[in-house]
């Protein structure tokens, strides 16, 4: 099957222009990597709403907080490694604590910065930010959902962290698909195993489900685009109706989607879980697909886990 592939950062870049045209209070706060993060069109079409603070992430977060106190909706744009960890405490102190209406929109999530190496691969970001009160953490699975979720995030009053891919990933959704922050998308249903994925691994989960179906195993596939607030009900339904759950994520297996799901399962006192994700190790310069393979984030691995007894 031939599927169209588009980086999710492109979805962000297009959505932010549409949003900016509709609402002059939507601002982009760039930190000198706007070109890579797809804010070029916004800069060109809406120069009055465009700010570039230079290579100064901390300042970008602070300026955004100040703008938000004056009714603006600033979108701080950078790479995920910097937009989460470099400015973690500014996000906590000046954005989340006062619950200001600032969006942090980051490209280069997970290992998608690939050949840039470990310094640029963000494998801890979503986990770190989900532990900050008032923060919402989202990673869309494809181009269309990126566009839709950026618009939902802009309409939501409060801090949101959005994470996109540098690399092209298959388009899963139609352009008119509706999304709700904090509500998982059930992309496929089945009673033998539940595969809960987010971001660039949702397409792997879908391919795995297809392969499993060919062997007579039916998998439920959830796109858990929001890891905070987590869709606890969707996880609970997987526990009650299926029991066997696999999480897949382009993020460290510590503190990301797998951990969030594990928390629900542990408190439920039932359900079984296996986590697929970055194996608590730094990456290296290598092709994106190879980096996923090095961590066992592959269709084959999902299929093998689903088939095995545990």
């Amino acid at each position: 099957m031939e599927t169209k592939k588009i980086p999710t950062r492109n979805g962000f870049g297009e959505a932010i222009v549409e949003l900016g045209k509709e609402n002059k209070d939507i601002l982009v706060v760039d930190i000198d990597i706007g070109k890579s993060c797809k804010t070029g069109e916004f800069r060109k079409q809406l120069p009055e709403q465009y700010i570039n603070v230079g290579i100064a992430e901390q300042n970008g977060a602070g300026v955004a907080a100040g703008l938000a106190t004056c009714g603006k909706i600033p979108v701080v744009v950078t790479y995920a490694a910097f937009g989460s960890m470099r400015i973690c405490e500014m996000i906590r102190q000046e954005i989340c604590y006062p619950k200001l209406n600032v969006k942090i929109a980051c490209s280069h999530g997970g290992v998608t910065p690939a050949n840039d190496g470990a310094s640029h691969q963000a494998i801890e970001d979503m986990g770190i930010l989900r532990t900050i009160p008032n923060m919402t953490v989202i990673m869309p699975a494809d181009y269309a959902s990126a566009k839709a979720l950026v618009k939902k995030a802009a309409a939501y009053e409060g801090p949101v962290y959005l994470r996109f891919t540098r690399d092209a990933v298959p388009v899963i959704y139609g352009e008119d698909e509706d999304f709700e922050i904090g509500k998982a998308k059930r992309l496929r249903d089945g009673g033998d195993v539940a595969i809960i994925a987010n971001g660039d691994t949702v397409c792997l989960a879908l391919q795995a489900a297809e392969a499993l179906a060919a062997q007579g195993l039916q998998a439920r596939v959830l796109d858990m685009h929001t890891i905070k607030p987590l869709d606890n009900q969707a996880v609970a339904a997987c526990i009650d109706e299926i029991g066997k759950i696999i999480t897949v994520e382009d993020h460290n297996i510590l503190n990301g989607l797998g951990s969030a799901v594990a928390e629900v399962i542990a408190e439920a006192g039932k359900g079984r879980l296996k986590r697929i994700g970055i194996q608590d190790q730094f990456g290296q310069s290598a092709p994106y697909q190879r980096l996923l393979e090095m961590n066992g984030i592959t269709v084959e691995n999902i299929v093998a886990l689903a088939q095995s007894q545990w």
């Binding site: 300042n59 602070g62 300026v63 907080a65």
Partner: peptide, 11 residues
């Protein structure tokens, strides 16, 4: 705080 003040002045 200073950066926040800069954001307010910019707004």
């Amino acid at each position: 705080g200073f950066a926040c003040g800069v954001g307010m002045a910019m707004a």
